[in-house]
Design a protein around this nucleic acid. Sequence first.
DNA 1: GTGGTCTAGACCACC
DNA 2: GTGGTCTAGACCACA
Lengths: 121, 121, 121, 121
Amino acid sequence: MFVINPQDRTPIFSQLKKQIIEFIGIGILKENDQLPSVRSLAADLGINPNTVSKAYQELELQGYLYTITGKGCFIAKTIKSEDIKNNKLEEFRRLSKECYRYKIDKNTLINILNEEEVNEC
Amino acid sequence: MFVINPQDRTPIFSQLKKQIIEFIGIGILKENDQLPSVRSLAADLGINPNTVSKAYQELELQGYLYTITGKGCFIAKTIKSEDIKNNKLEEFRRLSKECYRYKIDKNTLINILNEEEVNEC
Amino acid sequence: MFVINPQDRTPIFSQLKKQIIEFIGIGILKENDQLPSVRSLAADLGINPNTVSKAYQELELQGYLYTITGKGCFIAKTIKSEDIKNNKLEEFRRLSKECYRYKIDKNTLINILNEEEVNEC
Amino acid sequence: MFVINPQDRTPIFSQLKKQIIEFIGIGILKENDQLPSVRSLAADLGINPNTVSKAYQELELQGYLYTITGKGCFIAKTIKSEDIKNNKLEEFRRLSKECYRYKIDKNTLINILNEEEVNEC
DNA sequence: GTGGTCTAGACCACC
DNA sequence: GTGGTCTAGACCACA
């Protein structure tokens, strides 16, 4: 389900967090879905359970998960899913602004949007 | 000229590199322009000279700068400007793809493009 | 009768204990009242019978309950009610002290007391 | 400066977090004050640096601190200090409500407030 | 020097 | 079985 790239310089627990947030955003992980257990996921990915635990705990602090000790970790109310989309939109706005500063033409950007829309189908 | 945010988690030398590259891309820094000396820039920004030095060294390795010992650092051929645009476009393509995966509507994205185009004027 | 919040980080058996003690304090549960059986309460609350059992056992150890094997669990002498009030008062004193240390004004605290007194009616 | 009670069942890192938050609330720790380094505090308290680090990191996630890698940890904008007071007030309101439910008289509570106010001076 | 990450391995509480 | 905490010890990046 999740993929860790050891070459990537971003910390393992961050890679994991990012993927979980993405899966919530895309809708693969839904409210009250149970996440794999700390130990099993660690074994699957070949990493230390503490590392998985750290990812889960930070996600809990940020409100993406809730934990029931002795039972497992579960996706929190999907309100967060809207937050995730909004973050993406903010990122998009920032990047658009940057493109304009580099004097990139709006039509060039819209062409890319059209191309990728087709790829997606 | 440059702005450093020490609270930002991205290393200071990276912040500096990024801004120099951006200035080359936008055209504020042109071929053969001289950069401020390591010491003076460090003093201006209130950071360690080693940090400035590290930024300059990496930029030289990547071909953005050339150094003349005893004289200073200078911007290398501005051809890089095109590369930077292309990098931005690739980034834009990647982000668009992601937005579609999040089921964000194309019109929402185009609206943002329109809004930012106006802001830019 | 009892309410369990599995998402709450306090262990379920503690939540249960706390509510039983409160009910004794308020007078809802009186001396010699019978508590629901371990199995039925567990079924009602959708939790593990072991968890209910643990709560009952600890309460018995603390003198709040007595058990008659084969018949069930019963509330012990209600004298405990006074103790509970005193505990609350001690807690109140501790918290008041803390508020003062935080430079919170006495009038602010009295206002809250007045507001809640009205709500209670 | 900080005190760890190993007898206390609450986790060490939580005890530490709590004390730091209190110190911010009381005003002992102010905006931009530097906290002791992870290693030195760990040595002082006789605990593992990782444990201190965990406390600091959670406080950062919650907005109480900011970290400059290579320099240290610093108290964030004191806006948080208001939050801390408000949390105390909420706690006070909850406890007041509870006292009333136990049929504790308002005057009893006000007497305690008066007594503690004197002690504080 | 600073903090950040990771591992290995231990022990605990809860269900 | 679940997650939570802690230690010891290693290595890295940054200033």
